[in-house]
Simulated assay, not measured.
Amino acid sequence: MAAALALAVALPLSVTACGGGSGGDDGKIVIGTKFDQPGLGLKNPDGTMSGFDVDVATYVAGQLGFTPDKIEWKESPSAQRETLIQNDQVKFIAATYSITDARKEKVSFAGPYLVTGQSLLVKADNTDITGPDSLQNNKKLCSVSGSTPAQRIKDKYPGVQLQQYDTYSACVEALKNGAIDAVTTDEVILAGYAAQSPGTFKIVGQPFSEENYGIGLKKDDTELQKKINDAITKMEADGDWAKAFEKNLGPAGIATPAPPAIAK
């Protein structure tokens, strides 16, 4: 009797855990991305999603058997990404998510599906900021809490007045109204904002890092990792990767690169 009762209690729990919040019994899949990054992950006023990360994630979901109408998008700010994955709130995250050793201690990655580098965005009429070294002279620089670019500034350019906001869109708004002097993050992110407001901003200097964007997923889920890597490989091979890049990031003036090799 005790054994039967234990089984009866355990069964509903296991079904619930299996469904999780990331792709359950209703046939949907929950995918994390940014909601405020034009050209990469953006929630439009009509509620639709657009951007390169969104297109890559949609393609991957399709290869996993989920049509676009079965995708539920979950906003995934930089500082919350590992927690969302660890708590099964998403199946995977495609959100300008740089693959780093520190993050790999908490989550696993598929990819990379894009390589970019950290750069600087300033007002179009700015003449005195030319790269990270020119920020050391009491310039106010904005980046996002929990991001790789913010950590790099702290580690390598301690003389910079770094201000950390929750989102890059908040940084760009602060740049627009003069509260800060520059925004730093990956070049493709900055290019999206520059393209959204033609003539207002410009990217300066050369990229001063190499960022490999991966798709974050539950740590040690090697089965899902392989499926996502296979999907990215197929997207690159059939030309859909290049089409997605040209559609989303071409207007920002970035030439379409060769897709990166998948990490083995």
Rank of each mutant, 00 (worst) to 15 (best):
K74V: 09
L11S: 06
A95K: 02
G192E: 03
Q136T: 03
S98Q: 12
T116D: 14
I189W: 02
R103Y: 07
T130D: 07
L120G: 02
L114R: 00
G216R: 01
K243Q: 14
K139W: 06
P77W: 07
L121I: 15
A124I: 10
G214R: 07
N126M: 13
E75F: 09
M49G: 00
A258Y: 02
T48N: 04
A242L: 09
G19Y: 11
K247Q: 07
T58C: 10
Q161L: 01
A95L: 10
Q136D: 08
F208A: 06
D181N: 02
Q206K: 15
G250I: 09
G23W: 08
G20E: 15
L11M: 14
D128W: 13
L224I: 11
S147D: 12
T100N: 02
M235F: 05
Y59Q: 07
D25L: 09
I129M: 05
G47A: 10
S22H: 03
D166Y: 09
T33N: 05
C171G: 02
I129N: 00
L13G: 10
P149T: 13
A263H: 06
I215C: 13
G39L: 08
P158L: 11
P132N: 04
T167N: 12
P259C: 09
S14L: 15
Q225N: 10
K156I: 05
K34E: 05
N126T: 11
A79K: 13
F201V: 08
S119D: 13
D221C: 04
N126G: 02
S197Y: 02
K43Y: 03
G32A: 07
G111I: 05
R152A: 14
Q86V: 12
V144Y: 04
Y97G: 03
E223G: 08
P45Y: 04
C18M: 15
S76I: 14
P158D: 10
C171K: 01
V56F: 07
A179L: 12
S209N: 09
P251E: 09
K202N: 06
Y157L: 12
A102L: 13
C18E: 13
K154N: 10
P38M: 04
K139D: 04
K226W: 13
I85M: 10
G199V: 04
T48H: 06
V160T: 01
P158Q: 03
T148H: 13
K91T: 13
A6K: 10
G51P: 08
S22V: 04
V172R: 00
D230M: 13
T200L: 08
L120Y: 00
R152M: 15
T256Y: 04
Y193S: 08
G65Y: 11
S143G: 03
I93Y: 00
K202R: 11
P68T: 02
T222Y: 02
E75H: 06
S108I: 09
A110M: 01
A102Q: 14
R81I: 10
L13S: 03
A194H: 00
G19A: 15
K106A: 14
T33L: 07
K247L: 06
L11I: 14
M49F: 04
K106Q: 12
Q206E: 15
G65S: 09
G51W: 08
